[in-house]
Amino acid sequence: MTPADFSAIRLTAELATLTTLLLLLVGTPIAWWLARTESRWKGPVAAVVALPLVLPPTVLGFYLLVTMGPHGPVGRLTSALGLGVLPFTFPGLVVASVLYSMPFVVQPVQNAFEAIGARPFEVAATLRAGPLDTFFSVAVPLARRGFVSAAILGFAHTVGEFGVVLMMGGNIPGVTRVVSVAIYDHVEASEYAPAHALAGGMVLFSFVVMLAFHWVSASPRRRAG
């Protein structure tokens, strides 16, 4: 493997870490709302969150390229704010990954919140806990298994991203050339040795991640309580 390959691995790890942290931050309130609400907007919001599960990455890549580009509404806004345009930049990839991996974080957390049931919250209410207190000392600890699952899936799914990055990343070494794109490059140029090294590494990594996910999600829930 070349130094460029190691830089791709580092870049991918940074992207996945940052995306996962942001998603836990953004996704948790959404998951909480979805788990508790009886609003008629629940269905549409849940559907929008789940869209990346079924949309081809080319759809997301195309819209992001067009809307975040200099002529698109998001691109105009970011330019006006002095941030420049996002395609071909690392922050652009982070934005794309947050959207792309959203359901993989929101859904496990939402399920974990729903699994708590009403009882612990009633108890908290009789103990006069405020809503914020209830959230942080009842909901979050009881749902911690869901958070771990969400973090694992969000991280792994971001590492596995390809189509979106290819369409709006511009394949810049050290900036947007993640591992999946580096593999594609190697294969197309008939450089099988580094392609094997990276691809084999991805298989190993994904196996370990899915194994970890299995252990986390398969352990008896009772232990968490």
């Binding site: 390229l65 067009v66 580009g69 200099p70 395609p87 369409m167 709006m168 511009g170």
Partner: peptide
């Protein structure tokens, strides 16, 4: 794809 990067103004 190169042409598309330029046509959309991203490059």
């Amino acid at each position: 794809q190169t042409q598309q990067f330029v046509a959309t103004g991203n490059a």
